[in-house]
Write a protein that binds this DNA or RNA. Structure first.
Lengths: 344, 344
DNA sequence: GTGAAAGCGCTAACAC
DNA sequence: GTGTTAGCGCTTTCAC
């Protein structure tokens, strides 16, 4: 059967195509009775509006593009992050009857700009969601903005006053984790900083400091180690921290990979987690539930952030106005097995 | 600046829009000289064809949909699989100037059929790539086929004589792994079968049997254990195998998760891998490179399979004929640290 | 080799 | 509330 068109529906319903269009697009000014007639005809013909025609006529593509850093084949941890963002973005798209296009992008490399421009001009998406860390890459942000395509950034470092972004409460939730550790009786709570270039990770350190203060604990330089977000650097940092005469009883790492490194080292040194040492991470990557003991960590609401970003885009298009305030999706503590009350 | 249209280009080049269209679509019957004129105009105006208009007029959406099993939030191992498939599909799409839409799909659940139909009729993709295990779900396959959309299945179990699929050489490569282990001097090579419902896993067992035979080794029922693809089942199987009076010196598991389970048990029992026991897996998931010692395994060419699938779709559309033979993308042995020559 | 005209199936702007 | 009329920017068909 050849696909039914809007004309077929109009004819069958004995109405004009405009009225059918109104019903299809849920526009106002249609009598209930008329609407029903149209809907019956639509059902009978199994009619679906032709997207290409809609797009052409309406100057909207009903497409949202999700752009993220291209994980070159084997970059392991990113897979989970990406899938979760996609999941959220897809959820929002489905609700609003948009489609999601994914566009991994290698931002190192000379022709990012040309490639992005080509994609945008071909696809003409109604909006773009730019995930961290790309949301912090100037060249990428500017290229997209230059096309005039509505852009929402996820977890941008500096906001430049632009409210079109969604973020999480890294600092606050990290302070909460610190307070949680303190509430377990820990007094010597160490922190492993992450890669200095990574902004969220800086906020986490701030949160750690806040948390100490709020718990009435003093900052102790000896308890602060530097990492670079890798498992290996977590191991190195742990080795250093666990050599102190006055051992920490809890270690809070700025990400899960480093926390995993800590657990590995503790195991090698015969230090029992969580009995002798509590370990906490951040991100809630898949590994957090796979290792033993399972890792207490902070859930990054990636899926909800992506969802919120897409919704911002779609909402602002509907209302034809830009959102005037950023969205903050709070993270949550995931208390698992790697943390326990301090032993005496 | 308002976007340039094909008319603008035609006007600037002093030619008809049809000629411009010919150049844009690389059609024949254009004088070299004319082509150059057009290309110059295109460059000057920075013209890009409007996809929506192209789609509407040509009845092609230039969209490929990749459908896979929806990994509900935290289903860990699938993330890597999905990302790799996406990667391959995207590569092919980019080359051919198509866009990729992703569509995770929960095939359990009453309204899969309706949902799939809605998506297909709305989007009207030019082709669909259906990834395993969905490529084996009758209801899903039939629903898609009923819409008339060209479909290529990835790793389908039974082929039903339909050549529109791409697969890998599970059986052959598994026999290669077995021969490799034999070549290291192993004589007692155990095998852990995977989930019985999973077809690839059955082929792997066949390959194991082939490999034994080709190496002049006898099949020994005592050396064959059953798992269900989970880490836990790998542990159980290993425990059983390693209790035999006559220990195996190598264990080949039908997937990496089970192999990881074997390594965990070996560690607990104080059996050194690979010195006292060689362990091999299958799939080359991220974990294979994260555990210690790193796991010898078989790389599943997911990315290349997805790429091949998309190319089949696009090719057959161009030539307006269905491909008449399936594509087989061979897997490859990844020899890492978990296997070594048998100790005496 | 090149071009003119007729749509593709819808939405927008406005009339009624 | 509902209908009419123009396009949207291309591809297709067919004439030249």
């Amino acid at each position: 059967m050849p696909k039914a068109t809007i004309d077929d529906v109009a004819k069958l319903a004995g109405l004009s195509i405009k009225t059918v269009s109104r019903v299809v697009n849920r526009e106002p000014n249609v009598r209930e009775q008329t609407r029903e007639k149209v809907e019956k005809a639509i059902a009978r013909l199994n009619y679906r509006p032709n997207k290409a025609a809609q797009n052409l006529a309406s100057h909207h593509s009903h497409l949202i593009v999700l752009i993220y850093d291209d994980p070159s084949a084997y970059e392991i941890p990113s897979a989970g992050f990406i899938i979760r963002m996609q999941e959220g973005a897809l959820r929002a798209c489905r609700m609003a009857n948009y489609e999601l296009l994914i566009h991994p992008c290698r931002y190192r490399g000379k022709n990012v700009v040309a490639e992005l421009n080509a994609m945008i001009e071909q696809v003409r998406p109604d909006g773009i969601v730019l995930a961290a860390p790309l949301s912090n890459v100037r060249r990428v942000v500017q290229t997209i903005e230059a096309t005039g395509t509505p852009l929402v950034r996820v977890s941008p470092g500096k906001t430049n006053g632009n409210p079109l972004y969604v973020a999480t409460n890294d600092r606050e939730i990290s302070s909460e984790m610190t307070r949680y550790l303190a509430s377990l009786g820990h007094r010597r709570i160490a922190f492993i900083k992450g890669h200095p270039g990574h902004k969220a990770v800086g906020s986490r350190y701030q949160g750690y400091l806040d948390g100490l203060e709020q718990s009435g604990l003093e900052v102790c330089d000896e308890l602060i180690a530097k990492g670079d977000n890798s498992v290996r650097s977590g191991e190195a940092a742990a080795l250093e921290l666990l050599k102190r005469r006055d051992l920490p009883t809890a270690i809070f790492a700025a990400n899960d990979d480093m926390a995993a490194g800590v657990m590995r080292v503790a195991d090698r040194l015969g230090i029992k987690v969580p009995d002798q040492l509590s370990v906490a991470g951040c991100d809630d990557i898949a590994l957090a539930q796979q290792i033993y003991p399972t890792l207490t960590t902070i859930n990054q609401p990636l899926s909800q952030m992506a969802e919120a970003a897409v919704l911002m885009l779609i909402e602002s298009q509907r209302k034809k106005k830009k959102p005037d305030s950023p969205t903050v999706v709070p993270g949550t503590l995931k208390v698992r097995e790697s943390t326990a009350a301090r032993e005496d």
